[in-house]
Amino acid sequence: MSTETLTSAPASGAELRAFLHGLPGVDQVGADERAARLATRSIKNDAKAQAIDMAITMVDLTTLEGADTPGKVRALCAKAARPDPSDPDVPRVAAVCVYPDMVEHAVGALKGTGIGVASVATAFPSGRAPLEAKLVDTRAAVAAGATEIDMVIDRGAFLAGDYLKVHEEIVATKQACGDAHLKVIFETGELVTYDNVRRASWLAMRAGADFIKTSTGKVSPAATLPVTMIMLEAVRDFRAATGRMVGVKPAGGIRTTKDAIRYLVLVNETAGPDWLSPKWFRLGASSLLNDLLMQRRKLATGVYSGPDYFTLD
């Protein structure tokens, strides 16, 4: 595949389809097995302490509920800036992720902290809206100050084989983003096969995504290790082919420190250490942060801690 193909707009739907279906298939059993094997790595205390801090810096602290209030968003922002009020050594998280109408509250609360404000857009989580509505949604979030936009792809169009429509939506949204980073959510739980995950990854990267993200967190299964591994392989191969680096963000269902560390191992073993930075790898989560803080304190004090000692969110 030439670099030109991978960076240029597809000439036609048929060309794009031929490209995506020309990608090698994923060995499902092999992928599951490899991801499971990497998850059994034993991480000793020193490495664990470093991994916990690294995972905290990679968290996109998320609240995407119908019941979100400005007050809840401000509380979340305070937690993002100082995850453990009793310990100033705990690093900050990477970003706060909210709905578009909450962006202004997050921007106000995070001013001067250097923490990014990510906003979901494009009729999240279903993506079932006209393109114009999706673009208005995106522009509103960017205008309110979002530095990162998490868009969802049109899974219906993707599954129906209308790849060109998906491609064009990503390109249009990317344009609407301006300077904001664009993360493209596949909702892998709805894509059915690993082959589709690989195709969606290449499709999004070719359309100009800065990040590819597994799920909305609203559909089960959300992020899984094998799916993330396939996406990490895709970004690795894409860089090898074009020289452009694309980030990966698993989101949804990552609740424990153990899970988070498994993802870090996967990144290191699949895409390589270049991706071990909040610039290229994020963890979309909400309850994960408390577990990371709890494990961090266990390592520091030597005794097991409890949820009573950390803020609720």
Binding site: G302, V303, Y304, G306
Partner: peptide
């Protein structure tokens, strides 16, 4: 471990 556990 039981005596020192903060959630007991």
């Amino acid at each position: 471990w039981l005596a020192s556990h903060m959630d007991v």
